[in-house]
Amino acid sequence: MSYAYYQLPNGRVASLEEDCDFPPLARALKEPNGLIAIGGDLSAKRLLSAYQHGIFPWYSEGEPVMWWSPSPRMVLFPDELKISNSLKKTLKKQPFEVRFNTDFRAVMAACSNTPRLDKNNNPAGTWISPEMIEAYCELNRLGYAISMESWLDNQLVGGCYGIKIGRMFYGESMFHHVTDASKVAFVHLVKYLQTQNVGLIDCQMKTPLLASFGGREIERDQFMQHLKLLTRS
C-alpha cells in the first residue's frame, strides 16, 4: 500500500486517509519517539485496529489525530504487581467503595481535567478531548473499554480506564480527587484482569507511579510478540 506523507524535521510520517491502514511499525520515528501516522478518525474500527497493531492515539485538542508506537514501551505484567506497604494499609482499611464500569464517561471526564506534563515536565494541557471521550464511550458500549472506580459517600473520587482485547489490556489514564483513590482503583483493576487471564498491561509511557507498581520497559519487538499472542486469545 502507498501512503501520502507529512514531512517533519526528523522524518516523514504517514498521512492517514479515511480508509487507509496503518503503516508498518518499522516506519515509526525515533524522534519524537514512536510517531507513526497523522490524521484519520477515531472510529471504533480504527481504534481497535490501532491497538491490535501496537498503536495508540495521543494528541492535544485542535491538533490532527497523532498515532504512536514508542520503543521502549512501558508495560506491567499483572503477576508482577507491586503494592507498597502504605497502600496495603489503605487497601486493608477499605476507605472506598470500588465499582467496576458503572460510570465510564465520568471517569474519562475526570481524567480529562487532570493536568498532563510533557517530557520536560511542563504543563501540556489535556489530551482527552470531547471527541476522544465520545469515541471511547462507544468502545465502552461495545464492551472493549472498561473502568474501575473509587467512590466515597456516593461521589466518584478516583478511577482508571483502558481497553481490553482478548487477554491484552491497554491502560489509558487515571485520576484522583482523594489520596490513594486512583491507586486503589488501579490495584483492583489489575486483580480483576488477573481473573480474566490478561497477560500484559500496556502502560504506554514510563512514569514513576507505574514503575512503583512494578511496570518496566520492553522493546517494541518484544511488546509486539506478547500482543500478537494475547489479542488472539
Rank of each mutant, 00 (worst) to 15 (best):
223 F>R: 01
226 H>R: 11
231 T>D: 04
139 L>Q: 08
47 L>P: 00
77 F>Q: 14
107 V>A: 07
142 L>W: 02
127 W>A: 12
10 N>H: 14
222 Q>E: 13
23 P>N: 02
209 L>F: 09
112 S>N: 02
65 V>T: 10
149 E>L: 07
43 S>I: 00
131 E>Y: 12
5 Y>G: 09
54 G>K: 13
2 S>F: 04
114 T>H: 07
27 R>S: 15
122 N>H: 07
145 A>Q: 13
135 A>P: 08
121 N>K: 13
216 R>K: 15
56 F>H: 06
50 A>C: 15
168 M>I: 07
155 Q>P: 05
60 S>E: 08
13 V>C: 05
101 N>W: 10
161 Y>T: 11
31 E>C: 04
112 S>E: 04
19 D>I: 00
141 R>S: 10
89 K>R: 15
85 N>D: 13
49 S>K: 14
231 T>F: 02
40 G>S: 01
208 P>K: 01
144 Y>P: 00
127 W>F: 10
88 K>N: 13
120 N>W: 11
96 F>E: 02
22 F>H: 11
92 K>P: 07
39 G>R: 03
168 M>P: 06
143 G>M: 08
110 A>E: 15
186 F>E: 11
138 E>V: 05
94 Q>Y: 00
191 K>W: 05
140 N>R: 04
231 T>G: 08
80 E>V: 00
83 I>R: 03
13 V>I: 03
129 S>Q: 10
176 H>R: 07
126 T>W: 10
136 Y>V: 04
136 Y>D: 06
29 L>R: 11
155 Q>S: 12
79 D>M: 08
93 K>I: 05
83 I>H: 01
178 V>F: 03
91 L>Q: 05
63 E>F: 04
230 L>C: 14
146 I>R: 05
69 S>Q: 00
38 I>H: 08
181 A>R: 08
42 L>Q: 07
160 C>L: 15
93 K>N: 13
53 H>K: 14
76 L>P: 02
67 W>Y: 08
59 Y>C: 01
136 Y>E: 00
216 R>V: 12
29 L>A: 03
102 T>R: 12
176 H>P: 00
62 G>A: 11
33 N>A: 03
144 Y>F: 15
148 M>K: 01
167 R>N: 10
119 K>Y: 12
92 K>F: 10
103 D>G: 05
34 G>W: 09
203 C>P: 13
174 M>Q: 10
9 P>A: 08
76 L>G: 12
220 R>S: 14
186 F>Y: 14
193 L>I: 06
42 L>K: 02
216 R>D: 11
85 N>I: 09
99 R>E: 11
181 A>I: 07
73 R>W: 01
158 G>P: 07
130 P>Y: 05
125 G>S: 01
153 D>F: 00
111 C>E: 12
24 P>F: 04
193 L>V: 03
67 W>I: 03
150 S>M: 02
